[in-house]
Amino acid sequence: MTHLNLSPVRPSDEPLPDMLRETGGASAEFAHAAPRPMPEGTPIALSAHNVGAWYGSKKAISGISMEIAKNAVTALIGPSGCGKSTYIRCFNRMHEFAPHARVEGTILLEGADVYAPGVDPARVRQRVGMVFQKPNPFPTMSVVENVAAGLRFMGVRNRAEISDRVEEALKLAALWDEVKSDLKKPGIALSGGQQQRLCIARTIAVEPEVVLMDEPCSALDPVATLKIEDLMRGLAERYTIIIVTHNMQQAARVSDYTAFLLMAGDGAGHLVEYRSTADIFTNPHDKRTEDYITGRFG
């Protein structure tokens, strides 16, 4: 696995900037959401401190702090427009692709600041891969070329190594048995569910530490959805998974921890509650979470 030499965590004796202070940026009604629901000693893959994000002058999320447990599945739920996708796109610096986009706060990947000067965003995106709502295999490439694309981009040239890693990625994505007899067929010739698993294979081929999944099943039928969900549980043994979903049963089925985000009066998304998935779906502590997951929101 290629590891990056990102900048270290800020030295502990260095004062925190104002934007990183605990209550900074969040209104009082959202200030109590604890950023760490996991037991003491749980390894942390990613720490987000007081993260805010803008599209031009429009603030999309405000003051969100969360620690993401390593080798676990963390789900983000909330109504449309509450900033779930924006938040996870900050984790791998994809938010900055949007025109006039801006991020504040700190995001630490294995303790290193992904926004520190000198960090290559492309390398961050290799460590924090992403799977999107709609399967998006490269249309002109075969199954094997799709999975190999990321490896080639990383500079892997050895054919045997590429072949081995493609096979391993397709096996991990539970797609190998379905495509091994015809690896040269175009990726877009696969079914929707297979295409999404191909995209997952492409993502994990470059051996990321974190995989972001932005509504990965919303374009799939129920059978394909359940396959991806099973796959997620398996992948969590090797990777840290963060999933954005509107399907609350899906969040309840696949995740270990769940965060509920909501747009506040300032028009920005805030963190309302972040707990173990069992707690969120059987006994949420915040009435707004209760109202949302029981379908009585609004």
């Binding site: 609350m248 779906f281 059987t282 006994n283 949420p284 979470t289 209760e290 029981t294």
Partner: peptide, 8 residues
């Protein structure tokens, strides 16, 4: 598919 207090 009840959740939370409905499920309880």
């Amino acid at each position: 598919q009840p959740m939370a207090s409905d499920l309880r």
